[in-house]
């Protein structure tokens, strides 16, 4: 039921903020060439930008409630179809970044907890504070500078080299190139993914490592860990089966909550790496004052974040038997 205020809040916020920015779509398209004032007025009237703001907002809300997100003022394609075309690229990147953060962050947190008070622990926690406060745009540029420009190991931008054409069957480049049986395309796709994944995954990685460490430290002091040791189980089994399983409950919450921040980070990452996803698309829509795209895109991302949080709540009950029915 919270969906209604969230919906109004998100659309109102994106609507207000973009209208606070000087200029409208028509001026943005005209650019420096200039336009006759009568023509400008006529066009504004045609698109309804001469209406009072509250009327424009209410009209937009009514339109959205009817399931119509409108048409991009730039491409004349519907917002919905553009979103569907671009979204897989964002999911692919976000998925890789989360996977990277989980697969590295959680084991690091576990080891830090097991070796609490050692130089490894202090070093890792220091690094994670640095990682969590890393500005994405700076970090992205540094990675490009070192690995793309310096060593020449990875490409600078895009999803796949222009040399290859991959049939966009699912929209997920990794899946599409896998089925295309083109080894070069696969390799190119992977090498294009590496830097954006690391850049986008760094902040969540640092957060997961710290969260896992503190959750593990708490769980390792619990009575049932002593019981597990008293059974004569190996240290590995006590750590993974008994401790980590319990420590994951708060960590999963953090993973879920980080999805919102991740999509925000994706906007920056996609812009740096010219990654053709929704983040890139939304940034461009701001520059072009493409109101329907900006508002529709923001709304769709908000809905996805809500959906993910709902999914996390459900996963939480799977992990934690105490809140199960």
């Amino acid at each position: 039921m919270l969906i209604v205020p969230t919906f109004i809040g998100v659309t109102l916020l994106s609507f207000t903020l973009i209208h606070l920015v000087p200029g409208d779509p028509i001026e943005a398209r005209v650019g420096e060439r200039g336009i006759a004032p009568e023509r400008l007025a006529a066009l504004r009237h045609e698109f309804g930008y001469d209406q009072p703001l509250w009327k424009q907002f209410v009209d937009y809300e009514v339109q959205v409630v009817h399931g119509d997100l409108g048409v991009s003022l730039v491409t004349r394609q519907t917002v919905w179809s553009e979103f569907l075309t671009l979204f897989p690229a964002t999911i692919e990147l976000a998925f890789c970044a989360i996977g990277f953060a989980v697969l590295i962050g959680i084991p690091l947190g576990v080891v830090a907890a097991l070796r609490r008070g050692t130089p490894f622990d202090y070093g890792l926690m220091g690094a994670s504070v640095t990682g969590a406060s890393m500005p994405i745009f700076w970090w992205g540029l540094m990675m490009i500078l070192v690995f793309s420009v310096g060593f020449g190991w990875t490409p600078v931008s895009g999803r796949v080299s222009d040399m290859y054409f991959v049939e966009p069957w699912s929209g997920f480049m990794l899946i599409d190139c896998w089925f295309s049986d083109d080894e070069g395309a696969c390799r190119s796709t992977l090498s294009h993914l590496i830097l954006p994944t690391i850049v986008l995954g760094t902040i969540p990685l640092a957060n997961f490592a710290r969260m896992t460490r503190s959750a593990m430290l708490e769980v390792l002091g619990e009575d049932y860990i002593r019981t597990a040791r008293a059974k004569g189980l190996s240290g590995m089994r006590v750590t993974v089966v008994h401790a980590l399983r319990n420590a994951l409950i708060p960590v999963v919450t953090v993973i879920g909550l980080s999805v919102g921040g991740l999509l925000g980070g994706a906007i920056l990452t996609e812009t740096i790496f010219a990654w053709p996803g929704v983040g890139h698309w939304i940034i461009e829509s701001i520059q072009r004052r493409d109101y329907p795209v900006l508002q529709g895109g923001t709304l769709l991302i908000a809905i996805i974040v809500i959906g993910v949080n709902l999914g996390v709540d459900m996963l939480y009950s799977v992990l934690n038997p105490r809140i199960r029915r």
């Binding site: 019981t227 008293a230 004569g232 399983r245 319990n246 992990l319 105490r322």
Partner: peptide, 20 residues
Amino acid sequence: VGKDMAMIFQEPMTSLNPCY
């Protein structure tokens, strides 16, 4: 340990793993 010598503890509510 756990086979020939076993131990039970004071707090049964917290001595069992809540996840299993």
